[in-house]
Design a protein around this nucleic acid. Structure first.
Length: 267
DNA sequence: CTTGTGTCCTGTAGGC
DNA sequence: TGCCTACAGGACACAA
């Protein structure tokens, strides 16, 4: 998961450094350190950050020992409480910042002021944030003009609008009343206006409610609490159920990803 | 340049 | 019980 530099050099570089501030760019988490260095984490599909006290870490080790006593008896319950810790950052005051990630699609980078690792080309090429000023229907129109791909696939392209993933793309399209499979270049000015507004709303609310926790082993806050945006999902994970308009939510595959929409209120 | 597909990796759920 | 397939919060490389 450590893309740059090598794990041993990263460990050496981080030792004794101070975290001065935190930031975010799209789905990349930025730890601004002293001496103009930056640590970048990307959680991928299944990544989680946990902030643990030394005591919590100890208790966690005990429960791990307990579960391994089960040996072959109950494979399921042994796997359920695996933490999949991949990287452990030891902070001052005995706190632990643990990077857990079952599927290991998460990524870590570290670089200095005038350094631009190749591995971070993806971050450098990112488009605008839906919640930054300058993200408008005109911007979207410019990026989607003449594109024939399904609009939802282009919303997932971080070069066009960053920080939006499968959940928020589906939800924004529903709020905008646009089918996910519409060719992006065909959207009218009015639809682009609705879409820009819906993206802003969904990203803002997603942040306000601290993210989306779909199930127990999904995304969690660093203290282990669940996010809150799942309460406001209107189509994601609701195939076959009623839309608020009375229609029935459908699920289709676009670009290999599940896409949810209501054929009655999205066109 | 654009578009669609396969891939990385681990785990769960459901059908037979 | 095992074995199979499909699917899961992302983002690349690659071929056409």
């Amino acid at each position: 998961m450590i893309k740059y530099p090598s794990p041993s050099r990263l460990a050496r570089e981080l030792k004794g450094r101070r975290i001065k501030s935190l930031g975010r760019r799209g789905k990349y988490l930025l730890f601004h350190l002293d001496r103009e260095k930056t640590l970048v984490l990307h959680l991928g599909m299944s990544g989680n950050l946990r902030l643990l006290s030394a005591g919590e870490l100890g208790r966690r080790l005990e429960s791990r020992a307990d579960s391994s006593d089960l040996q072959g008896l109950n494979k399921e319950s042994r796997q359920k409480d695996r933490h999949h810790e991949r990287i452990r950052f030891e902070l001052s005051g005995g706190k632990i910042l643990s990077f857990e990630d079952t599927r290991t699609f998460g990524k870590v980078f570290f670089y200095g002021k005038d350094e631009k690792p190749r591995a971070l080309a993806g971050m450098a090429a990112m488009g605008r944030e839906p919640i930054e000023r300058g993200f408008s229907s005109a911007y979207l129109a410019d990026r989607l003009r003449n594109r024939k791909a399904a609009v939802k696939n282009l919303l997932l392209d971080q070069r066009i609008c960053c920080g939006v993933g499968n959940i928020y793309a589906n939800e924004a399209l529903h709020r905008a009343g646009i089918r996910p499979d519409r060719p992006a270049g065909e959207l009218t000015r009015v639809e682009l206006e609705k879409l820009a507004r819906a993206l802003r709303t969904v990203v803002r609310d997603g942040i306000r409610w601290c993210g989306t926790t779909l199930d127990d082993d999904g995304y969690k806050l660093p203290d282990g609490k669940r996010g809150g945006f799942q309460r406001y999902l209107r189509v994601v994970g609701r195939a076959g159920k009623q839309c608020r308009c009375g229609g029935v939510v459908e699920r289709i595959i676009l670009g290999g990803r599940s896409s949810y929409f209501c054929p009655q209120c999205q066109s």
